[in-house]
């Protein structure tokens, strides 16, 4: 069972929800079987779930992408590579070729179409994936190197862990663009964390459209539910989207989160709410777990 936690808008509480849900499920499965829950932090531009789950890392591997290397002995500056590059990563300016490596999507078109066969593909490191454990829970996250623009290769590498466990919780980056689509690939369910503000509503609407076109079942968590206005709830009612959990704006939650603490372990009423959330997810998916 692969459950993603996404938000559209940044800063709504995705990581709070995903890490606490993972802890709750892990507690439920404790002593039944080893490593039944895995947590994958796909927010590779700013991974932060490790601050709450505090894993011990056991392995780290680089993420490599293919980029063109041009043999200037063979190149006749015909500019075919620049023409076929959909991302404008290559410029052939008179007798000079400039390659913008951060714009390259590793599609291989330049290598394939070069009439002189002057291009070969070489590897370039764009980030790392680290894996480890927090008690009985498996943990992996990706870190995109500073200055890199394209995160999906790192996310894909983190996603390669998603079929290992009975339950996998995936922390999705904010937004609705390529990194989000990479993180949502082949999942069973998505929790959409939003807040009752105009920004929360707008970005949630974009994500709802995306999830519907990807045919992913989803439900909503409204964080800081007693602030802002009623429009998020009205939207959910009109669109027949289930609201599975409302988390009030609470000083204790803020304090424990700021200390990197675990809400489901330290606050009984939060544990009860997350337990209820987990039951609703299982019920919606007709789950046996």
């Amino acid at each position: 069972m692969k459950i993603a936690v996404a938000s559209g808008k940044g800063g709504t509480g995705k990581t709070t929800v995903s890490t606490n849900l993972a802890k709750l499920i892990e507690k439920e499965y404790e002593k039944k079987e080893d490593h039944r829950v895995w947590f994958l932090d796909c927010d590779v531009e700013e991974p932060n779930a490790h601050l709450f789950l505090k894993p011990s890392f056991t392995a780290s591997k680089p993420v490599l992408v293919k980029v063109p290397q041009i043999d200037l002995e063979k190149c006749d500056y015909c500019a075919r590579c620049s023409e076929v590059c959909a991302f404008n990563a290559l410029a052939v300016l008179k007798e000079k070729i400039i390659f913008f490596e951060h714009m390259c999507h590793s599609c291989g078109s330049c290598t394939y179409f070069c009439p002189q066969e002057a291009i070969k593909e070489v590897s370039r490191e764009v980030g790392v994936v680290q894996e480890g454990f927090c008690d009985d829970m498996g943990f992996a996250h990706g870190i995109l190197n500073v200055g890199e623009a394209i995160s999906p290769p790192v996310i894909d590498e983190v996603k390669s862990y998603q079929d290992w466990a009975r339950v996998t919780i995936i922390d999705v980056p904010p937004g609705t663009s390529c990194p989000v689509i990479a993180a949502l690939k082949d999942i069973d369910f998505c929790l959409l964390v939003t807040e009752p503000t105009p920004f929360g509503l707008n970005d949630m609407g974009l994500l709802v459209d995306l999830l519907r076109s990807l045919n992913i079942p989803f439900a909503v968590v409204i964080n800081r539910s007693d602030l802002g206005n009623e429009k998020v709830e009205m939207f959910c009612r009109e669109e027949k989207i289930p609201v599975f959990l409302k988390i009030p704006f609470d000083k204790e939650i803020a304090r424990i989160s700021a200390e990197g603490g675990s809400l489901v372990e330290e606050v009984p009423w939060v544990r009860d709410s997350f337990s209820d959330l987990w039951s609703k997810i299982k019920e919606m998916l007709g789950l046996w777990v």
Binding site: S82, N88, V92, L93, K94, F100, M103
Partner: peptide
């Protein structure tokens, strides 16, 4: 021609000027 490119519009424009 590169006005609506998803990225690298400036590179494409520079290439166009050279051509």
């Amino acid at each position: 021609p590169g006005k609506d490119a998803s990225g690298g519009a400036g590179v494409k424009a520079a290439q166009f000027l050279v051509d």
